[in-house]
């Protein structure tokens, strides 16, 4: 069922989550200004944009962690505001930026916390819950670490454990905040490959804030470029990573070209001050 809704937004299917236009301010400062955003099942959406563009905020607002946004947000067709924290957590999983996780919990205990939204107050984990966790650890390559304390792991291992915890939630929507920040190259690739495969295999949608534009282009089905709390461009990586939008958002001149070895999109940053041309200025207007 392809139908036009919401000002011409053409969803591949009924969107899992639709927001917008939403605005959000914190301590009197506007962070998101009239953003329209949606994600469907089977889709990996990359959020890109310079620091302070609102990527993390958008993830927290659409994931229900920060309430008080102006404008409609619906999750699986129901207003987000009507969900309890528990009900949201049954559908949406967050993978936070790597934070201090130096508690004497084992990897398995951390991953089991992902089952929390599915457990009642009087319940403890069943064999099925443990099986789901084991499977999540296996898929993220962290099963061998199950009995290690989380504080003894490397950054890449921790990141994968947090993804395992998110998978243990059995979510329909996965939100990842800079999942590759501070990771070594092989882990950056490994983590994004994992997320892409999960989205392809399972019927879940994913939104990842990604700093590295080439990585975003390589793994995401669609990119959303944020700039000063607004959506500058929303579309295929080739379209979003074109010189105009990047010049507006980052203030640099770029050219994209296919990598001679892999064929993936690469960006060359050119010397010299950016010279906007007329068509691109029109493009960049909010």
């Amino acid at each position: 069922m392809k139908q036009t809704r919401n000002n011409g937004y053409r969803a591949p299917d009924a969107p899992l989550l639709h927001a917008g236009p939403i605005s959000y301010s914190r301590d009197g400062q506007a962070i998101l200004c009239g953003i329209t955003f949606s994600v469907a099942a089977g889709e990996l959406v990359g959020l890109i944009g310079p620091n302070g563009a609102g990527k993390s905020t958008l993830l927290k607002v659409i994931g229900g962690l920060w309430s008080g946004a102006q404008g409609p947000i619906t999750l699986a067709g129901r207003p987000l505001a009507r969900y309890s924290a528990r009900a949201i957590a049954q559908q949406v999983a967050h993978v936070p930026q790597i934070t201090a996780l130096d508690f004497p919990f084992t990897v398995q205990q951390i991953a089991l916390m992902g089952r929390n939204p599915h457990l009642g107050r009087f319940q403890i984990e069943t064999a099925r819950d443990r099986q789901i966790v084991t499977e999540a650890l296996r898929r993220t390559g962290t099963l061998a670490l199950a009995d290690r304390l989380i504080g003894t792991l490397s950054g890449g291992e921790r990141q994968r454990v947090l993804i395992a915890r998110a998978l243990a939630q059995e979510p329909r929507l996965l939100l990842l905040d800079e999942p590759t920040a501070n990771l070594d190259l092989q882990h950056q690739i490994g983590v994004l490959e994992l997320v892409r495969d999960l989205v392809r295999q399972g019927q879940l949608g994913a939104v990842a804030a990604v700093h590295d534009l080439e990585l975003a282009a390589r793994f995401c089905d669609r990119l959303v470029l944020l700039h000063e709390g607004r959506v500058l461009t929303d579309g295929t990586p080739e379209r979003v990573l074109s010189p105009g939008p990047l010049r507006t958002a980052y203030g640099v001149n770029t050219r994209s070209y296919p990598d001679p070895v892999t064929g993936y999109l690469r960006l060359a940053v050119l010397d010299g001050a950016p010279v906007p041309d007329a068509s691109e200025v029109a493009h960049a207007a909010p």
Partner: peptide, 24 residues
């Protein structure tokens, strides 16, 4: 005792706890 699991989750951070379904 019924809030044991919530306390475990709060230990690793408030936002994480909320993301995992705890009404903080």
């Amino acid at each position: 005792l019924l809030y044991s699991r919530d306390l475990n989750l709060l230990l690793i951070g408030e936002e994480s706890a909320q993301a995992l379904g705890v009404n903080v």
